[in-house]
Simulated assay, not measured.
Amino acid sequence: MDRFIPITSLKNEQLKKWKKLQSKKGRAAYQSLLIEGEHLISEALKAGVSFRNLIVDAANKEKAMQILSGLPVQVPIYELTPSLFASVAETDTPQGIAAVIEMPVWSTEELLQDQDQPATYLVLDSIQDPGNLGTIIRTAEAAGVKGLWLGKGTVDPFNSKVVRAAMGSLFRLPMLGMDLQQALPLLKESGVTIVGTSPRAGMYHFQYPFPARSAVLLGNEGRGVDPAFASFIDAEIQIPMPGRTESLNVSITSAVLLYERLRQQYPHM
């Protein structure tokens, strides 16, 4: 029996719903996310994300069947004409297979549980570039960060460009969008030290002994951290730059700081 449900019309209601998932408003309304390609589908499966639909391009049906044969999920599979598939895909060169999944949701309690245990958090203030945020998410997971706090003005983590840059990490790494005026006090109340950066800090990042429970606060690509959050910062550090450049990309900064934090933890892990 053919498992594929054909869609051949632009007026199809299911197709209209998938197109709405291209916007933040649509994703929020349906609590769903459309992901593309074999790699992201595989990562979502490994993360235990709930699948709602699978979508294949009729022109790549044979390849899609090979991929689908290894998937344990039993959900509706829709077959679209190449032009219809391209209309829901957001990549320039679609791979011919996509899926609609349930958006991961985490709570404050999940991020702050085990308050007697060492933990590293990353707090982001108005990171606007999707590629930067995706890279930061991927790096944070690799470095063992327990959770991300995304302040106002930060790009939607389920933006398609963020999803692709994160390479599956956002299915696993807990994150929460919250006004940092609320998030930073919560972190401090749970025994987390807030570490900021400044070119005038006077202490290099490798000289600073990160406390057992630390959060690195990083700001907007252009203006840095909003001065309104300065009172929450417990310590400031700087990354030495003996060359002529004045600053580093925020995703590079996150990697440098998180891996120094990890280096200090490593003998005790």
Rank of each mutant, 00 (worst) to 15 (best):
H205N: 11
Q117F: 07
Q66G: 15
L184V: 02
R3M: 15
Q14Y: 13
T8G: 11
A143S: 00
K46T: 11
A47R: 07
L21T: 06
A228H: 12
D2Q: 15
K152A: 08
E13Y: 12
M203S: 08
T253I: 08
R223L: 13
S32W: 11
K16A: 15
Y266G: 13
M241C: 03
V145I: 00
Q181T: 10
P118D: 04
A29Q: 15
Q238I: 05
K46Q: 15
I136L: 07
A165W: 03
Q113T: 10
V192K: 07
L258P: 05
A230I: 09
T193D: 08
Q182G: 09
S50V: 10
L150Q: 00
G224F: 06
P104Q: 08
K63C: 10
R213V: 09
Q95P: 06
S107G: 05
A142H: 00
K17Q: 14
P240I: 02
I55C: 07
S231N: 15
K61D: 09
H39Q: 13
F232A: 13
Q181P: 11
G243P: 11
I77T: 13
L80P: 02
A215R: 08
A47C: 12
L262Q: 08
Q207T: 07
L112T: 03
A44R: 06
F232R: 10
Q66E: 15
N220K: 00
L187H: 04
F232M: 13
K63V: 09
P6Q: 00
N220A: 02
A89F: 03
